[in-house]
Amino acid sequence: MHIMEGFLPAIWCIVWFAISIPVIAFGVYKLNKLVKEKREILPLLAVAGAFIFVLSSLKIPSVTGSCSHPTGTGIGAIMFGPAITAVLSTIVLIYQALFLAHGGLTTLGANVLSMGIAGPVVSYLIYKAGMKTKLNFYFIVFLAAAFGDWATYMVTSTQLALAYPAGGVLTFGAFLSSFGKFAAVFAFTQLPLAIIEGAVSALLFKYVVDVKSDILVEMKVLEDSVVRKLRGISA
């Protein structure tokens, strides 16, 4: 999912930064406000950030014979929303760009958009929609995290296809042709990894509900009745 340093033409670097920076700024604002109002969320915030740290460092072999990594952003998106997750992802992406030559500073805007914004937005929407249904709670978390992961890689494919349309001229057909090629690299590789990410995220969420459900209720992530039901089953 990381677009490597220098792999996007300058114009696209600017476009993706222009979209990402306002979201990060809004995330920082929300983060400050949240921490000021509820200091007790700090540990959960650290856990959400740490989960992104762990998962995005694990390059996992996939069925396609290549390795890729999960994003770990689903948990943060569900608990704190996409904007704050964008801030957490940015920290991870800067670490990887500076110390691992993985991703890059010119492509940071593009990578923040795919991993820090698009994926979490999808996770968040699926979670909110899922909570209106009667599906099992952990299955909803699974779906949110798995599709968020997959959406991240779809956005990366889109970004690369926009920058490198077939034939060098950006028409819809040329875009689709390139998108197919980039998605072929990412989409199938990511499918099983998205399932793993979803499963592990659901498990982590179970433990959060187990030890700290009161904060989740307070942050309106979960309703009290849901917590009681979950505890009735799993406690």
Binding site: G6, F7, S66, T106, Y164, K181, V185, F186
Partner: peptide, 23 residues
């Protein structure tokens, strides 16, 4: 291999090998 490293090959193919990273 890492999927993150593969787009380089695809980009090279699309641009007929004229691709140079800008940084």
């Amino acid at each position: 291999g890492g999927a993150d490293d593969m787009p380089e090959g695809v980009i090279g193919e699309i641009t007929d090998g004229t691709f140079e990273p800008i940084a």
